[in-house]
Amino acid sequence: MHIPDGFLDTKVWITTTVIGASAAAYSLKRTKLALQPDKVSMVALIGAFVFAAQMINFPIAGATSGHFLGGALTAILFGPWIGTLIMAAVLAIQAIVFHDGGVTVLGANVLCAGVISCFAGYGVYRAGMALSRGRGRIIITFLASWLSIVAASAGVALLLSWSGTFELGTALGAMISWHSLIGIGEGAITAVVAGFLLERKMTLAKGEMQHA
């Protein structure tokens, strides 16, 4: 759902450029505080994986195609700020090197595919795991990443309608209906990869519930 240049009007792309740049700068600051040195290569590798997986469009209902986004995966693995930083790096390289997604709308793409998808995915995952007391982790991961796509597409719909492209209800309906199908792919890939890479802590210290 990379927005190309031209879809958003001037006030919207300028506003979202400011928001997207601030979010990227702040995520850099949070990463500095949170990232242990031994995780540097993991962050780089997951970013590369997200880039690679985003190249694979899978056909949907003969009418459209979807691809993995990665906001929920990066946020579940590293927390939402490092997730946002990874997504911003992926989106910037796609726009600058591969002409995928616009340059004036890079901030809007960072906002939707980065901030919104990371925080929506992470929020649902944390809340779901707390409510279920850790049961059904794979199902919660699936739902969290499905919702991250729906939330990101709703963000794009909001920006499109704010640009006067089309009316809000129509925009939301159109974007959410297609992306609730595309989100199934997101849920499946995230569940497999997060299931593969996350492990139970070796020593489960009592009272040690808080991180990030």
Partner: peptide, 16 residues
Amino acid sequence: TNAAGAESASSYVITV
């Protein structure tokens, strides 16, 4: 492990 106590997202860490 579930029988031993409640878990949450923080019970899981990225693999090394």
